[in-house]
Nucleic acid binder design. Structure first.
Lengths: 206, 206
DNA sequence: ACGTATCTTGACCATTGGGTCAAGATACCA
DNA sequence: TGGTATCTTGACCCAATGGTCAAGATACGT
């Protein structure tokens, strides 16, 4: 193994470790509320070491957000691969529910960023996300025009899907408490996912 | 006016002023991230004065949450006053949308509290809110039994309503950016409210 | 007008927290 | 094995922040 490779390996491993810890702490405490010392402790390294890999807390935060965006957008293409509205919506809602299950902290960091006024995501929202959304809106309009689904406000529909699926990540704690203090089992979560799919499909008349 | 009354008047006025400022700052920065100095500046008073009315930041935070709970629960009885599912759901969704419009900061403080693990609301969620929810669940089950709506998972439905309506408060900034950078007009928001109502009604087969 | 309770506020204190630094430890190649 | 680049870490610095205090200012009943 070359020096280069070795170095890169150590760096990548430590960066990944720190990013994961940071995502959790930022999710729980918010940007301002998160202490780099807490993040370092969560990662099991000294604070100075964290600052060796990420010069500033802000840079670290930005990279955490970028990570989340990558994974968030990964669920995006699903909207295109199938063609019947029912298949597309089912796949998309299922993928979003899966994301909420797998990456609850990521979803919360996103939510907090928006609630803080989206100082960092502002640009992304206005360009990439807006373009992506408008494309899906166009697809939905086509479905309506072809009378494949009942006439709905496409934006209202998309927001309902986002809100509902992300709710299972962002409000996980509330859901757990309302569920008698115990978390959903794998199986129960899959059933719930199907229920959400059915609600969404019915909302557009499918 | 008696001394007592006068004193109380000054105190109440200042407390209200501080609580409003605090709700905004907590909504934007989170509990840990919010500085009492910022809250004081937002309220237009010196920090020492704020601490005269609220001994600690934590006490202030708790009172802000209590305020929000009061208003949140105010929308709750609507679920009972009318009897046909369609009327009940329409009124409830409309009330929640109205709350998101009028008190966006309150909704965000709530969301942040839950995402932090609900350290303060924990008790409320497990008792009052759980009881309230289970009562509504029972009502929904009755509707299903009477075949007034199609069979849905009552919890999944309630969470969809909460998530979707609160989305308009918590993600206001994102919605604005996706709307081309301009906020919804009163009229547009009312239209959107009706769209949300229709989506919800359709989701249960109405 | 006087006395008392409340309110106001600048100055101050102790702790926390982001970020730096320099002295080692480690890894790898020649 | 020696040299160099990277990595690790305790100690340290300074600005920000929650909270205190004591000296006034204000309000109001008598």
């Amino acid at each position: 193994m070359s020096t280069q490779t070795r170095k890169i390996k150590i760096r990548k491993a430590n960066e990944a470790l720190i990013l994961e810890a940071a995502e959790k702490i930022f999710a729980i405490s918010g940007y301002k509320g998160a202490a780099t010392g807490d993040i370092a402790r969560e990662a099991g390294i000294p604070k100075a070491n964290l600052h060796y890999y990420f010069k500033t807390k802000f840079r670290l935060y930005r990279e955490v957000l970028e990570h989340i965006l990558d994974d968030w957008m990964a669920a995006a293409p699903i909207f295109d691969t199938r063609h019947e509205p029912e298949d597309v919506l089912r796949s998309y809602v299922t993928a979003k529910m899966e994301f909420s299950r797998q990456r609850p902290y990521g979803s919360r960091v996103w939510a907090r960023e928006i609630m803080s006024g989206a100082p960092v995501l502002d640009d992304f929202l206005g360009t990439t996300l807006k373009a992506w959304l408008e494309e899906r809106v166009r697809i939905i309009r086509r479905w309506i025009h072809e009378e494949k689904i009942r006439p709905v406000d496409p934006h209202a529909l998309m927001y309902m899907i986002w809100a509902t699926t992300q709710h299972y990540a962002d409000f996980e704690q509330q859901i757990m408490i309302l569920n008698g203090g115990k978390a959903f089992s794998e199986r129960r979560y899959r059933q719930r996912t199907n229920e959400v799919v059915r609600l969404v499909l019915n909302s557009v008349g499918l």
